[in-house]
Amino acid sequence: MTKTIMLVDDSDSLRHLVRIVLEGEGYGLIEACDGCDALSKLNGRKVHLIISDINMPNMDGLTFVKAVRNLPDHKFAPIIMLTTNHHEASRKEAREAGVKAWMVKPFDKLQLLEMVSRFAMP
């Protein structure tokens, strides 16, 4: 069965690249351009993993992560942050909200695949 991954980022080109990498390995992808968009797309679907940026319009990544934790269906969905944000404070905040891992852009293809296969829900 294909595993579905949700990718939340406001950059078209980043989503494009991640899509090339992940679809090449047989994952299914749901893309969203910000937190609000992602929440509306989560509704009623099962995702095995969420990858999210932090700095986005409308709803930023940290707010989004906290909102996901309040959804009964997605309470335990693993989340990876993929971002350029280095602030220790936001890392801490993310960890407390249950984020599994933190990747810094620009990402490495193998590293991304390794992370995804490690954290995606069975």
Binding site: D10, S11, S13, N55, P57, T84, P106
Partner: peptide, 16 residues
């Protein structure tokens, strides 16, 4: 919005 534009260009530029 200006900050985010610069931020996204920087981030995506790094990918390439």
């Amino acid at each position: 919005a200006i900050f985010r534009a610069a931020h996204t260009i920087k981030g995506s530029g790094g990918l390439f």
